[in-house]
């Protein structure tokens, strides 16, 4: 079997097309607890794009201009929201035992995201270029 066919077969088994982008969900999903993960992802999108804007503008820009201050704040509060929601999502998934029933790799992806985010957050302290950065 060639690799393209094998890849297609594996993807077809792991991510069946008829189960992607579902328009119906089980009743138990109707809880705010299930919003925590998507809130984490949404804040990550805000962090990502505001971070790109900060990089383009540069240190002088985000420390001195009103628009720079705005994007600096947007990035800062995005990170606060990201960690707030990520930790609550972690609590929720831990108490739900979200690693069970073949979802181990989903759990591992969360662990990796957590382990990457914590050191990445320290880079934000550097961007303050103050005593905290030192």
């Amino acid at each position: 079997m060639n690799w393209t066919r094998r890849t297609r077969q594996v993807l077809g088994e792991r991510l069946p097309a008829e189960e992607l982008l579902p328009d119906r969900l089980p009743a138990y999903v109707r809880s705010a607890v299930y919003l925590l993960g998507v809130l984490t992802l949404s804040s990550l999108v805000v962090i990502f794009f505001s971070g790109i804007v900060l990089v383009i503008g540069g240190v002088q820009w985000w420390h001195t201009s009103p628009l720079g201050h705005f994007f600096n704040s947007l990035h800062f509060w995005g990170v606060q929201l990201f960690f707030f929601c990520m930790v609550l999502h972690l609590w929720a998934q831990y108490f739900m035992g979200a690693w069970r029933d073949g979802r181990a790799w989903t759990w591992v992806s969360g662990v990796l995201a957590f382990l990457v985010s914590v050191p990445a957050a320290f880079t934000g302290y550097l961007s303050q270029t103050n005593f905290d950065a030192q």
């Binding site: 809880s31 705010a32 607890v33 925590l36 930790v87 609550l88 929720a92």
Partner: peptide, 9 residues
């Protein structure tokens, strides 16, 4: 965080 977690539940 604890308040938000309990509220969400």
């Amino acid at each position: 965080m604890v308040l938000a977690f309990v509220a969400a539940l």
